Computed example of a mutant assay.
Amino acid sequence: MNSPNDPETLTICSAKGCHAAAVWVVAWNNPKLHTPDRRKTWLACDEHREHLSQFLAVRGFLKDVVTLEEWERRSAADG
């Protein structure tokens, strides 16, 4: 089993029980807990992107859904 800090683990879908490679970053923020600029992230495979996005959207937490590649580009540019 991979450790939480293993680079391979960091690219696996966040959906419970899924072990597929992540393709998407679902960025969110709970306004009761986080400052407005803070972004928490879940990773998603193609199959779970919509489910994870809807789960957060219903709660008013969803901020952005972008490809993992785009998220990494943004992070590098900010960084």
Rank of each mutant, 00 (worst) to 15 (best):
N2W: 15
S3E: 12
E8V: 11
T9P: 01
T9E: 13
L10C: 12
L10P: 01
T11M: 12
I12P: 04
S14H: 04
G17E: 06
C18T: 02
C18R: 07
H19Y: 10
H19I: 09
H19K: 12
A21H: 14
A22L: 04
A22E: 02
A22C: 08
V23N: 09
W24H: 10
V25K: 14
V25G: 02
V26W: 02
A27T: 00
A27Y: 00
W28N: 08
W28K: 05
W28P: 03
N29V: 01
N29W: 04
N30G: 03
N30D: 15
P31W: 03
K32A: 15
L33V: 04
L33K: 15
L33T: 08
L33N: 13
L33C: 09
L33M: 11
H34F: 02
T35M: 10
T35H: 12
P36V: 00
P36I: 04
R38S: 14
R39E: 06
R39Y: 01
K40W: 11
K40I: 07
W42R: 12
W42H: 13
A44Q: 05
A44V: 00
C45W: 05
C45P: 01
C45M: 01
C45K: 05
C45S: 07
C45Q: 01
D46T: 09
D46R: 11
E47D: 14
H48F: 01
H48V: 05
R49E: 12
L52G: 02
S53M: 03
Q54A: 09
Q54G: 07
L56D: 04
L56C: 03
A57E: 10
V58L: 11
R59Y: 07
R59T: 03
G60Y: 05
G60N: 02
F61I: 04
L62I: 00
K63W: 01
K63L: 04
D64V: 05
D64S: 12
V65K: 06
V65C: 07
V66R: 13
V66N: 07
V66K: 11
L68H: 05
L68N: 03
E69N: 15
E69H: 13
E70Q: 11
W71T: 02
W71R: 14
E72D: 13
R73M: 09
R74H: 10
S75E: 14
S75C: 11
S75Y: 09
S75A: 14
S75M: 12
A76L: 11
A76T: 09
A76H: 09
A77Y: 00
D78L: 15
G79S: 14
G79N: 11
